[in-house]
Amino acid sequence: MSDTRLSPWRHLPNAISLLRMALVLPVAWAILVQQPRMALGLIAIAGVSDGLDGFVARRYGWQSRLGGILDALADKMLLVACFLLLAWVGLTPWWLALLVCGRDVVIVAGALAWRLLIGPIRPEPSLLSKACTLIQIVYLLDVLVAASAWPALPQSPLEIATALLCIASGIHYVLRWSIKAWAIKHPSSGDVPR
């Protein structure tokens, strides 16, 4: 029996992630020309591809560090583009778009600092981070559904929930990784910074 990790198909999950990145431009265009239904359709395709690449990678043991990075990057590119462009066309407030993007900038800056000062980093999304991503997706879909003149949820509570989870998740990332860095840099002290 051959090892499926050596199959030429092992790069399929990464290819799907790259295709999802390529969908960012058509989604951005659909938002800019105020075609929310088209944007929703493209985001639905991106969502299916997100589930598909993860399933295929796990099912056949084709997970890789590159695949994890590409998958997360594709998701972030789509979310950030949607928030910024929806703010640009006036469908979502700028303060929320900047808060979402600011959180991601803090996380990326922290990851780069870790890489430079500590060493290789293994992404470990927390439940709070996953909840933050989920509420961002729900909020964006709701904005596009409302812009399509379809029944939608009230946006103010979703805006507040998105903002609060962004702030909580950003603080959690900073504290969690700061404590880990302290423990690595000061292994003998046994103390965590107060």
Rank of each mutant, 00 (worst) to 15 (best):
M1D: 12
M1S: 15
R5H: 13
L6Y: 06
P8S: 11
P8N: 09
W9K: 12
W9D: 10
H11M: 08
P13D: 11
L25S: 14
V27S: 07
V27C: 10
A28V: 14
A30P: 01
I31E: 04
V33P: 00
V33W: 01
Q35P: 00
L40K: 03
L42W: 01
L42Y: 01
I43S: 13
V48L: 15
V48Y: 00
D53P: 00
G54N: 06
G54E: 04
F55A: 10
A57D: 02
A57I: 02
R58G: 07
R58M: 05
W62V: 04
L66D: 03
G68S: 06
G68N: 03
G68R: 02
I69K: 10
L79C: 09
A81W: 00
L86T: 10
L86R: 02
G90N: 08
G90R: 03
G90M: 05
L91G: 10
T92P: 00
A97G: 08
A97I: 03
L98Y: 03
L99G: 10
V105G: 06
V106S: 10
V108N: 07
W114I: 07
R115L: 13
L116S: 08
L117W: 02
L117P: 00
I121M: 14
I121Q: 11
P125I: 09
L127E: 11
C132L: 02
L134N: 08
V138L: 13
L141W: 02
L141F: 11
V143P: 01
L144P: 01
V145H: 05
A146N: 08
P151N: 06
Q155A: 14
S156Q: 12
P157W: 02
P157N: 10
L158F: 05
E159W: 04
T162C: 15
C166Q: 12
C166H: 03
A168N: 07
A168G: 14
S169C: 11
L175V: 15
K180N: 06
W182P: 02
A183N: 08
A183T: 12
I184G: 03
K185C: 12
G190Q: 12
